[in-house]
Design a binder for these strands. Structure first.
Length: 485
RNA sequence: GGCGGCAUAGCCAAGUGGCUAAGGCAGAGGACUGCAAAUCCUCCAUUCCCCAGUUCGAAUCUGGGUGCCGCCUCCA
């Protein structure tokens, strides 16, 4: 089956046909690094990470580029406030970005280019646009002439005249047309600046993505993504300047995620209603946040709400419990790593999963398959309590585990350990605690043996207070501890 | 003002013409258990914002209405 995705350019769901068979080249706009990322920034990170993983699952060789904007007004202003060098500040938040991204299960892109490392490419591209008559220089600024590019507005679906009628465009005497935008900005004193044929200056916001995506992915690369607030003007301008410069089609598919809202309003820095991922991680583990972000289709708005996030957390516990039971059964009663089952129910789960993901990356539907599989595993184990597993049953269990791992490899919801297993529970902080806990559990077991329920319950309640839950089973006690970090 | 999106149970959320409207959370009852926890079983939307229409048949298509949101300015 082919993968279908919604292309902003055509406003339709289209079959994905790569530029080069078996390969996907994708570019996603990364953050401007002047602060920690907030949840709104996290949505495209998690989503496009999932897209990239799914292409890999479908055996595409993926080249995934995500830039950092490390030269920008906001960075300069912030640096001035903090008395720090702008590039140093930006570099610091790039490092912080990777910390948060890792917690969210987001893998590093193949390349994370920085604007500050690509001045030559940017200057070169601006020069080409000037030479071709698509841009003009005024007092050290270089502006792109919107009217010189016939298709301007094709991505956002608006004409130049429609955009003008919005009348929110400020009047700038330097601009020949109010919609013209800066490719290169003349340096002001005290700002980072680079040499160019138009004097010292720095790039406008949009040109960096054109220059870097074309450098690493080439003309007509497959997918360009980002938040829907980037459609206009950022991506529209990228299309204009790139296609004007090369004369070739820029990106073939444009994908845009919807916003995170708070009380139904867009989460944004200007409204001040944003939640930093860093702060949220103190309250929820990264896997819960990732699950929350993937629990709604990426193009729909997603309202952030603590209670909803809490319910996601409980759902995740259910899945982890199921995997924990499966691992126990595998270890105790089906240790041989024989071939997994590849028939019947498991196959249909896999098909459902693929159908969901093929249909414009419907992660919400894909996640439901995880629950269906967990339920099937639970029911199976319930029905085979205390039974010895035959070869067919062992194959089913191994197959279920493999399938779960495959789906998790795409969705990335559960952290896995070195052996590739989903981390179902936390271990003790140190070996002393481990021994103490074992001793305590032994004492409790002996108390239970003589029906001393008061002592047994006292131990259980006491452990619960420090976050350890006990579950008595016919085969002995099982303990769990789950808390953020 | 221009353009676009959304409205499904207490909450979150799939589903875009046709079998019983996925799944999760919460809730109710039952099994298991010393009691719990976990797990299993059963129940929980005759109905998809409202009205009109198309159709043998619509949550799904068309028209109208209501409500909410976004973009047009930095923003993921």
């Amino acid at each position: 089956m082919a993968i279908f995705l919604f292309n902003t350019l055509t406003r339709r769901k289209e079959e994905f046909v790569p530029r080069e068979e078996g390969r996907v080249a994708m570019y996603v706009c990364g953050p401007t690094t002047y602060n920690y990322i907030h949840l709104g920034n996290a949505r495209p990170l998690v989503f496009f990470d999932t897209v990239r993983r799914y292409f890999a699952y479908r055996n595409y060789a993926v080249t995934f580029i995500q830039n950092f904007t490390d030269v920008d007004d906001k960075i300069i202003n912030r640096a001035r406030e903090e008395g720090e060098d702008p590039l140093a500040l930006a570099g610091r938040y790039v490092r912080e970005y990777f910390h948060d991204a890792r917690e969210l299960g987001v893998r590093p892109a193949d390349l994370h280019p920085l604007v500050s490392d690509h001045m030559a490419e940017i200057v070169d591209m601006v020069g080409r646009l000037v030479k071709k008559g698509h841009a003009y220089e005024v007092e050290g600024d270089v502006l792109f002439s919107v009217r010189s590019f016939e298709d301007y507005g094709k991505l956002s679906g608006r004409s130049v005249d429609e955009l003008l009628s919005g009348a929110r465009v400020g009047i700038d005497p330097k601009k020949r047309d109010p919609l013209d935008f800066a490719l290169w900005k003349a340096a002001k004193p005290g700002e980072p600046a680079w040499d160019s044929p138009w004097g010292q200056g720095r790039p406008g916001w949009h040109i960096e993505c054109s220059a870097m995506s074309l450098k690493y992915l080439g003309e007509g690369f497959d997918i360009h993504g980002g938040g829907s607030d980037l459609i206009f003007p950022h991506h529209e301008n990228e299309v204009a300047q790139s296609e004007a410069a090369t004369g070739k089609a820029f990106a073939r598919y444009w994908m845009h995620n919807g916003f995170i809202t708070v009380n139904q309003e867009k989460m944004s820095k200007s409204l001040g209603n944003f939640f930093l991922v860093r702060d949220l991680l103190g309250r929820f583990p990264g896997d819960v946040l990732r699950f929350f972000l993937l629990s709604t289709h990426y193009r729909s708005p997603l309202d952030f709400d603590l209670e909803v996030t809490e319910s996601c957390s409980r759902g995740l516990v259910r899945l982890k419990n199921s995997m924990g039971l499966l691992y126990e059964a595998l270890d105790d009663r089906a240790p041989a790593g024989g071939p997994g089952d590849s028939g019947g129910e498991l196959d249909s789960f896999r098909r459902e999963f693929e159908t969901a993901m093929d249909d414009d990356f419907n992660t919400a539907a894909a996640i439901s398959v995880l629950f269906d599989l967990a339920h099937a595993v639970n029911t199976f184990l319930h029905e085979h309590r205390g039974c010895r597993f035959g070869p067919g049953e062992q194959a089913f269990l191994h197959g279920a585990g493999e399938l779960f791992h495959c789906m998790n490899e795409v969705l990335g919801i559960f952290p896995v350990d070195e052996s590739g297993r989903i981390i179902v529970r936390q271990s003790c902080a140190d070996s002393d605690s481990e021994h103490l806990l074992a001793l305590l559990l032994d004492v409790r077991e002996k108390a239970r043996g003589r029906k001393d329920w008061a002592t047994a319950d006292h131990v259980r309640n006491g452990l619960k207070d420090i976050g350890i839950t006990l579950e008595d089973t016919p085969d002995g006690v099982r303990w769990k501890r789950r808390s953020p970090d």
